[in-house]
Design a protein around this nucleic acid. Structure first.
Length: 407
DNA sequence: AGTCCACAGGAAGGGCAGGCGA
DNA sequence: TCGCCTGCCCTTCCTGTGGACT
């Protein structure tokens, strides 16, 4: 087949001018030259960490704030500034996100990741944990230095492995001859500190900083800055920026969401061949973000978890056909019965109710269902489950699960 | 006031795969 | 090769519990 240049299927992407001049500026991992509305917090963090420059150990620090309030970007900004000025002064910064699955979600993996960060490679499994601790401490104690260890989403680590890890880290400073470790914990769980063991609490949370959610006006500033760096001029109006800011402000002042919304709206506009980002694109973007988030999360779950999700969807359909649509609250027992049927139909090993109960809990954590423990008095105590996704997304998830499981 | 349901959820441990060091 | 270590998924056994019913 002879394809002339004029018929090339990619031609329209080349000919059409892009809406973006630097798409990276519209991602949450992008580090802008300035971080609007976080000047105070950044100043506080730098005041706390500054003693490291004079060779003293800074206090441990805890940073609280909900999703998308600029905690991570602020600390990364401070770290980059600190690294820049501290060359040769024996300061080393290590940043680890504790929620990274298969990377730092267990004590062993976290230690392995820490060792990797300081240039020591260990196998993914196989060594006793205490050996990893020893290697880590020996390695950093080789020279006089201050380690600033940032543990982002530290609450999820604590939920998984408890507080032994934190205890070991805080305790070790007295045992090392040369190096010291300063811990910076970042969490969006405001009650995190209360759950900690008293012995850790006293040594860990020397300093605390709270990041408040952004309001719509602040979000607008943030977006405007990103737009000026990332989007070609005149492709987006101020009203659209305000709209994205307002939508994200409703979602607890989440800047990450606002930025994603803007980027995806731009992508949608490009795909539709439009040269301006409009209201319609933002609406489509919002739906696409939700859809992608949900389908991706479920797609990444193990087969058993998908079977449980599928059982919940099937049960909702069943209730729907019985004209109970208005009240589709499903109970653990009903879900388990449906799950057994689903397993039988698909030649899947049936797990115990205890395990399925945990899987339901995990789906709740992922935000695709809402599970609430209720008591029905004489009729027992159980969990009441409601699907937390809208009909359009539900259909997509359903067909994805049918494809994966069978029926 | 006591009973009793249908689970929730904690604890302990089995079995597996993968890796290390002797 | 063997003993020992890890994480992970799962089962078994168990105690706890809110509130409708008696």
């Amino acid at each position: 087949m002879q394809v002339t240049k004029k018929d090339n299927i990619f031609l329209r992407f080349v000919e059409k001018e892009s809406i973006f001049k630097n798409k990276k500026a519209l991602t949450s991992s992008f580090m802008p030259s300035k971080i609007p509305h976080r000047e105070e917090e950044i100043k506080s963090i730098s005041n706390i960490l500054a003693p490291a420059l004079r060779g003293y150990q800074p206090s441990n620090l805890f940073i609280y704030g909900t999703v998308g309030t600029g905690k991570t970007i602020s600390i990364r900004y401070v770290l980059s500034q600190l690294e820049e000025i501290s060359k040769g002064r024996g300061i080393r910064t290590v940043y680890i996100n504790c929620k990274m699955k298969k990377v730092s979600d267990t004590e062993y993996r976290l230690l392995a990741q820490l060792l990797k960060e300081i240039g020591e490679f260990v196998p993914e499994t196989g060594l006793p944990t205490h050996l990893l601790y020893r290697r880590f401490f020996e390695k950093i104690d080789e020279k006089k230095q201050t380690i600033i260890l940032v543990l982002d989403e530290i609450d999820s680590l604590y939920k998984k492995i408890g507080d032994d890890f934190l205890y070991n880290l805080t305790r070790v400073n007295g045992e090392m001859k040369n190096a010291t470790i300063t811990l910076v914990g970042i969490t969006n769980d405001l009650s995190f500190r209360d759950n900690l063991d008293a012995r850790i609490k006293s040594s860990l949370s020397d300093e605390e900083i709270i990041f408040k959610p952004y309001d719509a006006l602040q979000l607008k500033d943030i977006l405007a800055q990103r737009v000026s760096e990332g989007v070609i001029e005149d492709t987006i109006s101020e009203e659209i920026i305000s709209m994205c800011a307002a939508m994200a402000a409703q979602e607890h002042g989440d800047a990450r969401r606002a930025i994603d919304l803007l980027r995806v709206a731009g992508e949608v506009a490009e795909r539709l061949g439009d040269s301006q980002i409009t209201y319609k694109h933002v609406e489509l973007a919002e739906e696409k973000i939700d859809m992608d988030r949900v389908t991706e999360t479920i797609k990444l779950q193990p087969k058993q978890s998908q079977a449980v999700m599928y059982s919940i969807i099937k049960l909702q359909e069943k209730y729907g056909s019985q004209k109970k649509w208005a009240d589709t609250r499903m109970l653990t027992g009903d879900i388990y019965e449906m799950y057994k049927e689903v397993c039988a139909r698909n030649n899947l090993k049936t797990l115990t109710q205890r395990r399925v109960s945990d899987l339901i809990g995990e789906l709740d954590m992922l935000g695709v269902i809402t599970a609430k423990v209720i008591s029905k008095g004489r009729y027992g105590r159980t969990r009441e489950v409601v699907l937390a996704i809208n009909d359009t997304i539900l259909q997509r998830v359903n067909s994805m699960l049918v494809e994966r499981l069978g029926n």
